[in-house]
């Protein structure tokens, strides 16, 4: 079963910019559901109240892939996420997220041949400060023959 070869020209091209508002309610719901118990994540009156470090993992930009990206079908799964924390996220922050494809590669695993597409979102706060980088490894698999 051959996979479509994806042109590596897609790597590095920015294809989406999205804006997200961080809310106190959103921070609390995320923190509690993950089992956080530290007051800096669960108590809005704490002087250092902030979102848990992987909070930006929840954001999805308007496009997952660039507009003209080859159609690889709907089969696939989420292979993992890497979050790099560059600064704290506070309630009422407005985040700007810039999306690009950071890498593309093929491999075979237990479930057969796969294309890995690394979707990178770089988040900046309202002051233009970088606060987080999220690498999302998306897998696409060819339809069974």
């Amino acid at each position: 079963m051959a996979l479509i070869s994806i042109d590596r020209k897609w790597i590095g091209q920015e294809f989406d910019v999205a804006e997200f508002k961080v809310s106190e309610k959103g921070i609390l719901a995320f923190a509690r559901a993950c089992g956080e118990t530290e007051p800096r994540f669960t108590d809005p009156s704490h002087p250092d109240f902030q979102a848990p470090p992987t909070f930006t993992s929840k954001y999805v930009s308007r496009r997952i892939l660039p507009e003209a990206f080859p159609d690889l079908g709907a089969r696939g799964f989420d292979a993992g996420k890497t979050v790099e924390v560059l600064g704290p996220l506070r309630p009422n922050d407005t985040l700007t997220a810039r999306s690009k494809i950071a890498d593309i590669y093929e491999k075979t695993g237990r479930s057969g041949p796969m294309i890995f597409i690394v979707h990178r979102m770089e988040f900046f706060n309202q002051d233009g400060q970088p606060v987080s980088i999220v690498d999302w490894r998306l897998v696409r698999q060819p339809d069974p023959e």
Partner: peptide
Amino acid sequence: GILAAMIHKWAPGCQIRKLDTVF
């Protein structure tokens, strides 16, 4: 997020700089 919470329970006040997870 659960793994981050586990780290915070072990070392309250620590700063997670990077968390990489393979599903």
